[in-house]
Computed example of a mutant assay.
Amino acid sequence: MVGDTLIAALIAAFDLLLFVARVVEPQAQPRPEPWFITLPLIVGMVAPIVFRRKYPLTAAYLALAIGIPHSLAEIGIGSVVTGCIALYTLVAYVGRRAALLYLAVSEVISLVQLPLQQPDDWVLGLIMTNLALAFSWALGEFIGARRAYHAEVERRLRLLETERDQQARIAVAEERARIARELHDVVAHAVSVMVVQADGAAYAVHSQPELAERAVKTISSTGREALTELRRLLGVLRSDGNGGERTPQPGTQSLSDLAGRVRAVGLPVRLDIVGNVDDLPAGVGLGIYRIVQEALTNSLKHAGPGSSAVVRVARAGDQVELSIVDNGRRTSGTLVGVSGGNGLIGMRERALVFGGTLDAGPRAAGGWEVRASLPIGNS
């Protein structure tokens, strides 16, 4: 409304200058109406412009009604300009039907008023008025089409954002279901070990108490590990479908085999393991394996020919640090082919399940890097 108020003030100022010029000029014909008639007509003529966007129909017909005495008094250009602005507003903001009806009413008024007011050259006045109205219609069509285009673009962007969020949530749910199934296998394996050890302890408790004591200790440690995995499992939704065969899952001991398979398909991989990672809890070992597997898969897809990767697994106390780096090519500062897909979501979810963190992104020197930190504690 600030811009429309400025436009209205500009039109009113022009009409007011014409009125003052005719007042100070004694030979002016026709003589202007008294100021107490002219000034209200000037203000009333431009007032609908101020609220034309909020009430386009009301503003248009109010301007048309006030334009009749304004033009009869020959005050200035306010009636013509305001009428053109009203027609443009109806075309751009309301629609062609309302604008066509307004144009028809305006044409009838012009056909009646112009011959009475300008009997000698009313045809020229009608042509000029129609040209101005035609330009206003064309401008309204252009602006209306742009507004409709921008509204459609915004609607599609909102739809795409909603779809992207839904896909991310679906990917998270699917990955959590997969993690839950794998943790279920870990817990099932631990319970199987506990049952076997308990049976052995029952047979050896009298004849070989030392052997029975070792079996009980194994049951104790395995049970604690299983409880840890169960606590993690409680926060993960599990899908009951597609049971499949229950087999022990890979862990850090399988990283060498994984690196060998990736080398065989064309990506040279160097595996560096620092510290003892063979006695990690089964769930943590599985998470490490899956993160490395997904990161190397992304490197195979996106790094490009001639690339290589370095995998580093380092254990320091109760923490395991992972680093998977490749030297894939870059174009205009962005790694070729890499986008925010479900693989990154899955890796991050795996790290969060164990209370860890994961960061991934392009390297300044070129290529892509995935860094993860996983705690080994039992909580």
Results as ranks from 00 to 15, higher is better:
residue 173 A to R: 14
residue 378 N to S: 14
residue 121 D to M: 00
residue 184 H to W: 11
residue 67 G to S: 02
residue 14 F to L: 15
residue 323 S to D: 08
residue 105 V to C: 05
residue 239 S to P: 08
residue 101 L to M: 13
residue 236 V to Y: 10
residue 38 T to I: 13
residue 239 S to R: 07
residue 8 A to P: 08
residue 19 F to P: 10
residue 234 L to R: 13
residue 69 P to F: 04
residue 16 L to K: 11
residue 15 D to S: 10
residue 322 L to D: 01
residue 326 D to Q: 03
residue 371 R to A: 04
residue 100 L to Y: 04
residue 72 L to I: 07
residue 219 I to G: 05
residue 371 R to V: 11
residue 191 V to L: 11
residue 137 W to L: 03
residue 185 D to G: 09
residue 310 V to N: 00
residue 118 Q to L: 12
residue 16 L to Y: 11
residue 115 P to T: 14
residue 15 D to Y: 11
residue 64 L to Y: 04
residue 283 G to E: 07
residue 298 N to Y: 02
residue 133 L to S: 06
residue 143 I to T: 04
residue 173 A to S: 13
residue 341 G to Q: 08
residue 305 P to M: 14
residue 114 L to W: 04
residue 268 P to G: 08
residue 318 D to A: 14
residue 305 P to I: 13
residue 369 E to C: 10
residue 282 A to W: 12
residue 150 H to E: 02
residue 203 Y to L: 04
residue 240 D to I: 12
residue 227 L to S: 11
residue 109 I to T: 01
residue 132 A to V: 09
residue 229 E to V: 14
residue 25 E to Q: 13
residue 19 F to W: 15
residue 254 S to A: 14
residue 348 R to A: 06
residue 230 L to W: 06
residue 307 S to T: 06
residue 216 V to Q: 01
residue 59 A to Y: 08
residue 147 R to E: 00
residue 283 G to L: 04
residue 343 G to D: 12
residue 5 T to G: 13
residue 352 L to D: 03
residue 170 I to C: 08
residue 346 G to T: 05
residue 47 A to D: 09
residue 54 K to S: 12
residue 288 I to G: 04
residue 327 N to K: 12
residue 257 D to P: 03
residue 253 Q to F: 10
residue 9 A to S: 12
residue 86 A to G: 07
residue 107 E to D: 00
residue 48 P to I: 13
residue 313 V to M: 01
